[in-house]
Simulated assay, not measured.
Amino acid sequence: MSEDITLTENTGALQGKTIFITGASRGIGRAIALKCAADGANIAIAAKSAEPHPKLPGTIFSVAEEVEAAGGKALPMQVDVREEDQVAGALKKTADTFGGIDGVINNAGAINLTSVEATSPKRYDLMMDINARGVYLTAHLAMPYLKQSASGHILSLSPPINLEPRWLGPFAPYALSKYGMTILSMGLAEELRESNISVATLWPQTIVATAAIEFAVGSREMFDQSRKPGVMADAAYEILSTSDKSLSGVQLIDETLLRARGVDDFSQYAHNPAKAGELMVDLFLDP
Rank of each mutant, 00 (worst) to 15 (best):
G29F: 07
M186W: 10
P273V: 08
Q86R: 12
G262W: 03
E191K: 04
E65Q: 14
H53F: 08
P170H: 03
W203T: 00
G152V: 02
V87K: 10
A70Q: 06
E278W: 03
R166T: 14
D129K: 12
V79T: 08
E238V: 15
V81D: 01
A211R: 07
V81I: 15
D102K: 01
T119L: 08
T256V: 11
M280S: 05
Q205G: 05
A69K: 15
F266R: 02
Y174R: 07
K17F: 06
L14P: 10
I28E: 04
R227T: 04
G249D: 10
P204D: 04
A236L: 04
E221F: 09
S115Q: 03
L155D: 03
L252M: 09
L155W: 08
P159F: 09
I197Q: 00
G100Q: 09
F171D: 04
M181E: 14
S156W: 05
Q78N: 08
V67A: 09
S158W: 04
A276C: 05
N196Y: 00
P76W: 04
I43H: 03
E278S: 12
H140S: 12
L240I: 04
G218N: 11
G152W: 00
A44S: 13
S241P: 13
S241C: 11
L176E: 06
L240S: 05
F223Y: 15
A110P: 02
E238R: 09
G29H: 05
A24F: 03
W203N: 02
G100K: 07
D286I: 10
D224F: 01
D4S: 11
T206I: 02
H153I: 02
M181W: 00
L155A: 03
P57W: 04
N272W: 00
G152K: 02
I239Q: 12
A64D: 07
Y174I: 00
S149E: 07
E278G: 06
P160H: 11
F98L: 08
D85T: 14
L252P: 03
N162T: 06
K93N: 13
H140I: 00
R26Q: 14
A108V: 06
K228C: 09
L91S: 10
D102T: 01
E190W: 05
Y174H: 14
K122Q: 14
